[in-house]
Design a protein around this nucleic acid. Structure first.
Length: 584
DNA sequence: ATCGTTCGCCAC
DNA sequence: AAACGTGGCGAACGAT
């Protein structure tokens, strides 16, 4: 096929059917040949992928790739440039944060036309029903050639990347974000293995047998009845904070709220009952049978991931609460027979990011070790690891209250460069400025309302203005860390995805798949005999991410990796000796 | 009935 | 012991 050596290929799928058009591009985005019409887009792309593995350029991964996946061979596609994911990154760097990101919007900006607002992101195109007609979400004006517009906008994005203040980092950020788009689509397609039987066992243990209709499970109903008795016997809905506060007041107990930590300090028989009720009630409501009916099909939990859905670059999810699966429910995430789950999480990721970015000698010394907090403690806290950890987390979150404030003061003395980095970020935010991640993801600028308030122009109180100022300082302080950790995590999954695709498989269908990703943690579903190779791939990907994002820093970014049939069992091995089950 | 806000809990 | 960052989500509740 002509042009198969092109480094990039632009893709425009037909609105209906299986065809589309392809156009080979130079790295700069300049066309190398005429567009090529193909009747079977997936087959043509698979051939091209096998021959030359170009970077696929398209308007939006989420609108194209899910439709291709069922028809692609196991190797799938290697790399892409997602115009809609790249656009907001570039807009942020260009002081145009938050402007519309669609292909049509970028095209309109390019031609000085009126920019269409983005469509609201609904529950994404579920291709379950063989929906031949994907609605056009490009926002291009009618009559515009989508491929020509794509090629023009992509070339312009390449120019913008090249003229960014730090082109190499921007290029890496755009590539990583685009790779994230591929991973997200594939994870949504492959799904997290989820055993209905195991899930049922967990639920029955906790709640009792599945009730008919919408009835309350027996254990929950019993707890509610007991609680009502303990609070005087009057009808009570334990799900209503207002009613609960009133009922406790009648017992002579005045509560500031019905939060768990408040209730835990209450000396009354109703308090533990309410705590138990709330715990079980939440499981039933958020991850019970109704949840499974809605989100688990054919032994897979298939949520929708939203790449770049969090300002810091972390992912969000839409539906199913994918990023909030309660720990006690994770026993239901069970590998297929003959398969295993490889679970890897980056321990102490955020403090390691701070160490690497700041170049602080003391922090680097601690971060070169397996346990950063222990190193910190030995250096500055007389070996008290808990205090070292509390202080460092406080410094990264902007905590000032109580004892933690003093710990932060110690850190400032002993690790001036590291503390200087987060405090400079806080000052920038308080002054209304923006900060950026290691790879250059930009934080949102302050709102007009914030500017009015903090400049005293809106008539708000000085207290409100001061509170908003401090709040933005905490946001930007944390942003530089959280967003840089997200940079690393994105590089990790991109590298891991590529390495998994290169693993030799003997039997078709036996390829390891990334099935879950949560901020600093990945899960790979793999044939058992490949589990060791997957572990090695994870470790190598972590090292690759470190080098790409942080260069030659001595700080290590170790991944705690465990292999088990269930997510739960793999995680239990991860926790450090019972004490201190906190993250990071 | 339907919508938006508040509370509160889950994850990192 | 409890206020310190990013989110999603469900029930209650009050407004339309």
């Amino acid at each position: 096929m002509a042009g198969q050596t092109a480094p990039r290929v632009a893709v425009a799928a037909d609105q209906d059917g299986h065809g589309g058009r392809l156009q080979p591009l130079a790295e700069s985005g300049e066309p190398l040949d005429q567009p090529l019409r193909v009747r079977d887009l997936a087959a043509a792309m698979a051939d091209w992928e096998a021959a030359a593995a170009p970077r696929w350029v398209w308007a939006a991964t989420e609108e194209v790739y899910p439709r291709l996946l069922p028809q692609l061979p196991e190797g799938r596609l290697g790399r892409c440039h997602d115009v809609k994911l790249v656009e907001p990154l570039l807009l942020g760097l260009e002081d145009r944060y938050g402007q519309p990101r669609s292909l049509g919007a970028a095209w309109a900006r390019l031609h000085g036309r009126q920019v269409p607002p983005d469509l609201p992101e609904g529950p994404g195109g579920d291709s379950d029903q063989d929906s031949l007609f994907a609605p056009d979400r490009s926002r291009l004006p009618p009559g515009t050639d989508p491929l020509a517009a794509l090629v023009a906008v992509h070339a312009e994005q390449q120019r913008r990347i090249a003229s960014a203040a730090e082109p190499a980092r921007t290029r890496l950020l755009c590539a990583a974000e685009s790779a994230g788009g591929l991973v997200a689509a594939e994870m949504g397609y492959d799904g997290l293995p989820w055993s209905a039987q195991a899930h049922d066992r967990l639920l029955v243990d906790l709640l009792g047998p599945r009730p008919r209709g919408g009835a309350q499970p027996v254990k929950l109903a019993a707890l509610a009845a007991e609680l009502q008795q303990a609070l005087g016997g009057r009808p009570l809905n334990p799900d209503s904070p207002a009613q609960v506060l009133r009922a406790f007041a009648e017992q002579g107990i005045s509560l500031s709220s019905t939060r768990n930590w408040v209730l835990r300090a209450v000396d009354h028989p109703a308090a533990p009952l309410l705590l138990s009720y709330k715990e079980l009630s939440r499981i039933h409501a958020a991850h019970g049978w109704a949840w499974r009916d809605a989100w688990v099909r054919d032994g897979r939990f298939r949520p929708e991931y939203v790449v770049g859905g969090v300002v810091s670059g972390r992912w969000a999810s839409r539906g199913g609460g994918a990023l909030q699966i309660p720990r006690i429910m994770r026993g239901a995430a069970l590998a297929d027979p003959g398969w295993l789950l490889v679970v890897a999480d980056a321990g102490q990721l955020e403090p390691r990011v701070l160490a690497a970015m700041s170049g602080d000698p003391g922090m680097i010394r601690a971060g070169a070790q397996g346990d950063l907090y222990a190193g910190l403690a030995a250096d500055a806290f007389g070996g008290d690891r808990a205090r070292a950890k509390l202080g460092l987390l406080g410094a990264m979150y902007g905590q000032t209250s109580g004892e933690t404030g003093q710990l932060v003061a110690v850190l400032r003395r002993r690790f001036p460069q590291a503390m200087g980095l987060v405090e400079a970020a806080a000052r920038t935010g308080e002054a209304g400025g923006v900060v950026h991640s290691r790879l250059g993801r930009v934080c949102p600028p302050p709102s007009l309302g914030w500017l009015d308030l903090t400049e005293g122009a809106s008539g708000g109180s000085a207290e409100d203005a001061a509170r908003d100022t401090r709040s933005r300082g905490r946001f930007t302080r944390n942003f530089v860390i959280q967003a840089s950790a997200a940079d690393w995590a994105l590089a990790l999954i991109a590298a891991l995805r590529r390495r998994l695709a290169q693993l030799p498989t003997s039997v078709p269908g036996d390829r390891p798949r990334l099935v879950f990703f949560q901020h600093d943690e990945v899960v790979v579903h793999t044939p058992a005999q490949l589990a060791d190779a997957v572990r090695e791939a994870v470790a190598a990907a972590g090292e690759e991410a470190r080098r790409l994002v942080f260069g030659d820093t001595p700080v290590r970014f170790p991944l705690d990796t465990h292999v088990a049939a269930s997510y739960q069992d793999a995680k239990e091995g991860t926790e450090e000796d019972g004490e201190d089950t906190e993250e990071d």
